[in-house]
Nucleic acid binder design. Structure first.
Ligand SMILES: [Mn+2]
Ligand SMILES: [Mn+2]
Ligand SMILES: [Zn+2]
Ligand SMILES: [Zn+2]
Lengths: 138, 138
DNA sequence: TCTTAAAAGAGAATAAATCTTATTTAGGGT
DNA sequence: ACCCTAAATAAGATTTATTCTCTTTTAAGA
């Protein structure tokens, strides 16, 4: 919880109970939760937190690069507190999304694109969306 | 327009003016349009098409693998009529999304994952989301 | 041509996200 | 420690994208 505070301070953000709760929720839940799921989780200790506050805080975190959005095919956004470069595994028959870290792959891609490039495009970031099936229940 | 009809017939779908218009709109517009954009486009010739019909038709097309959704960080879905395997270039400062076809890359990735695999996961499809900036105005 | 299941139209309903305004609060300055 | 104020939150209305329900229309096979 102290390093959560530090994280906010580093970005020059005021430390509020709501921000701490939301960030803590995101950091302890690696399943890329929705805003709704975060609210449910923190309502236990913060019964009066407003929906708008949650969305506002999430936006603030994104702006300050504390969290990221995870794009899905559903009409609901999901959030990710892990900022180290990583890819995602999407289950093709459920909403499950897992992180996939692979430095060897990243190096391979980097080498490939440094050599080849993409015409008229300056690459900033490459992420894989790997669709498939998990062979083990989480 | 005839091969659009054929496409529907192949999937066992009834040929309706609405479906033809929507699929034609999608195939002539490579910018990964939203449902709203498709409606705007086809309203010129189909002024009475219902919003619900457009969404219903799009869903039907997705079910029958005639089109695909394109995931974005905005709260609006985008659609893609190109079904051949390809990746996407996302502009980090606008809504522009372009196709990126690279068979050499696909082969590289395939070789990599055949050799390495992902533990407890059966890969079905790999797509790159390349974020960056377009260096030439479209 | 007739029949009927499927599709479309109209508009209400929902769900996610955003906005507005009043109130509260964090934290720097005194 | 206390003030001050800009920033943050609460509450609830609003918007926007999407879905649903129900009625009417239509495609296409018999
Ligand atoms: Mn939405
Ligand atoms: Mn929505
Ligand atoms: Zn992640
Ligand atoms: Zn595409």
């Amino acid at each position: 919880m102290d390093n959560i505070k530090k994280k906010l301070q580093e970005k020059g953000l005021k430390i509020t109970p709501q921000r701490l709760a939301i960030l803590q929720a995101l950091m302890s839940n690696k399943s890329h939760p929705t805003a709704e799921m975060i609210m449910e989780y923190i309502r236990v200790n913060h019964p009066n937190i407003a929906t708008g506050t949650v969305y506002k805080v999430l936006d603030t975190f994104i702006e300050h690069q504390i969290i990221k959005k995870v794009q899905t095919e559903k009409d609901v956004m999901r959030y990710d507190a892990i900022m180290d470069h990583h890819h995602h595994l999407f289950c093709s028959e459920s909403e499950r999304i897992e992180d996939y870290v692979d430095i060897e792959l990243d190096e391979l891609l980097q080498a490939y694109f440094i050599k080849k490039g993409i015409p008229d495009f300056k690459i900033e970031d490459i992420r894989l969306h790997v669709n498939g099936k998990f062979l083990r229940i989480e």
